[in-house]
Design a protein around this nucleic acid. Structure first.
Lengths: 195, 195
DNA sequence: TACTAAGCCTAACGTTCGTTAGCAAAGAAA
DNA sequence: TTTCTTTGCTAACGAACGTTAGGCTTAGTA
């Protein structure tokens, strides 16, 4: 057998991710996907069961990556909440930049999952957001952070980060780690000059 | 003629906006839209020319509202950049909250516009973002704001705001003006406690 | 050599899509 | 009364949709 860098199934996943990102899940046809892979639409079904399976795999794989990164970033209990939050932000940015196409699909196309996957996905997302919320709340009670409403702060913070796949392009002027540092700084220090 | 609160055409626009928001433009069929209006699919074409015309009207109407709000908020040249930025943020939030369904469509579904509308739309959006960018840059050179990279700051700021339609619900615990103030504060002052 | 398993093809299935044509009812304007 | 406009209907159009069945080719295995 040819030792391909990517198995055919992985190629399908990757091409589907790119198409779902730019055209959206619903507007991407199996024939389009097949054409991008240089094959016929029917042939794809030798590798997958359905179009939705593709979306399902993309969304849940990324959920796993976000969780793994967050857990690793916040594992050190000795650290105060503020630096742990900073590390969580950097981890989130790392996932967004290393797999920005899949991230965009994860963020925008999940609603085309049918039940029960959709509910399951939303539960995962809520649990992830709760992680940030609790980190911010911890920092607030410890006096490290100013956050009268941790839930509100967490929403705003993740919103800023999640916009990233909309403009980030690999090989641009800013490296992923630069972006992570800048975002963390801007979100933690704000725009207004310090007193 | 019956003096309806909304003309039939406006009812169609409004129902289409709600459906496009929750299911997406591509995944919303004309038959679904018709059913939600209590009519048949073919009948809609007595009022509109095409499905895309609906999307076009929603997107460009909101673009106008964003511009009108921004222009009014930043018209006072006597004011320093920082308070004008704050007013622009509040105006943006006002549009997002008073018409959150249309805002969500504006933010997510524009890519289903076909050319040349799509390019035209993106040019408008870029011009709007440039307004924020220049305001931040002005504040930075005047020493009012700390923003080493105004473009980056503008992206992050708008990202935080544009996430709003994803969680805002009219009649929730926070009134739109509260939200606007909190967002402006958090973005301008940051999360970290001040020195 | 014969057998097996991938991988892809063609052809077609039943369904749904956006849209159109032609007609009917009903009220406003003349 | 006649005419026109508005609004909606039914029925259908061609196209595109996701998916399946069955067969062919090729490469690895026994």
């Amino acid at each position: 057998m040819e030792t391909a860098l990517l198995s055919r199934k992985d190629q399908i996943d990757q091409t589907a991710t790119a198409l779902f990102r730019t055209r959206g899940f619903a507007a991407t046809s199996m024939r389009e996907l097949a054409a991008a892979l240089g094959m016929e639409a029917g042939s794809i079904y030798s590798h997958i069961r359905s179009k939705e399976e593709l979306l399902h795999r993309i969304c849940f794989r990324l959920a796993e990556e976000f969780f793994a990164g967050f857990d690793e970033a916040t594992a050190d209990d000795a650290l105060p909440a503020a630096p742990r939050l900073r590390r969580a932000v950097e981890s989130h940015v790392r996932v967004l930049t290393t797999d920005s196409a899949a991230s965009a699909v994860f963020l925008h196309e999940w609603r085309h999952l049918s039940e029960p996957a959709r509910t399951e996905f939303l539960a995962l997302r809520e649990r992830y957001e709760a992680g940030f919320r609790e980190l911010i709340a911890e920092g607030a009670t410890a006096g490290e952070l100013y956050a009268p409403d941790p839930a509100f702060a967490a929403l705003t913070l993740l919103a800023s980060l999640n916009w990233l796949p909309n403009w980030y392009r690999p090989g641009g002027p800013l490296a992923p780690t630069d972006i992570a540092h800048r975002l963390a700084n801007q979100l933690l220090f704000g725009l207004e000059v310090r007193c």
